[in-house]
Computed example of a mutant assay.
Amino acid sequence: MENMHDDEMEIDLREIFYALKKRIFMILAVGLLCGCLSCVYTKFFMTPVYTSTSSMLVLTKETTLSSLADLQMGSQLTKDYTVLTTSREVLQKVIENQELNISYKALKSCITLDNPTDTRILNVSVTYPDAEKAKAIVDELANVASSYIGDKMEVIPPKIIEDGEIPTVQTSPSMSQNTMLGLLAGLILSAGIVVVITIMNDSIKTEDDIEKYLGISTLAVVPDRKDYIGKKKKSKKKKSSKGGRA
Rank of each mutant, 00 (worst) to 15 (best):
Ser67Cys: 08
Leu181Arg: 15
Lys226Glu: 15
Gly182Asp: 03
Leu20Arg: 09
Val90Gln: 11
Lys239Phe: 09
Ser147Tyr: 00
Glu8Met: 10
Thr82Lys: 07
Cys39Ala: 10
Lys233Ala: 14
Leu219Glu: 02
Ile95Thr: 05
Ile16Glu: 06
Asn3Met: 12
Asn115Leu: 04
Val169Arg: 08
Ile121Glu: 02
Lys233Val: 15
Asn97Gly: 01
Ala185Ile: 09
Ile95Leu: 13
Lys43Ala: 08
Asn97Thr: 04
Gly192Arg: 08
Ala246Val: 08
Ser174Ala: 13
Ala19Ile: 03
Glu99Phe: 00
Gly243Leu: 07
Leu181Cys: 03
Tyr213Val: 12
Glu89Phe: 09
Glu165Tyr: 11
Lys79Asp: 14
Cys34Tyr: 10
Ser190Ala: 15
Val194Pro: 03
Thr206Trp: 05
Tyr213Trp: 13
Glu8Phe: 06
Lys105Ser: 04
Gly74Met: 13
Thr171Phe: 14
Leu20Gln: 07
Thr64Ile: 01
Leu214Thr: 06
Asp12Ser: 07
Leu71Phe: 11
Ile160Val: 15
Ile121Ser: 02
Thr85Asp: 06
Glu99Gln: 11
Val49Asn: 08
Met56Thr: 09
Gly31Asn: 10
Glu165Thr: 15
Ile161Gln: 03
Thr179Leu: 11
Phe17Arg: 11
Leu91Asp: 02
Lys43Thr: 06
Ser67Lys: 01
Lys232Tyr: 13
Lys133Val: 15
Lys234Gly: 09
Ala142Cys: 07
Leu84Ser: 06
Asn3Tyr: 09
Val169Thr: 12
Arg225Trp: 04
Lys22Met: 06
Ser109Cys: 01
Asp114Met: 05
Lys108Pro: 00
Asp80Phe: 01
Gly215Leu: 10
Thr171Glu: 11
Ile95Lys: 07
Lys232Leu: 14
Tyr81Cys: 05
Cys34Gly: 00
Lys236Ala: 14
Glu140Arg: 00
Lys233His: 12
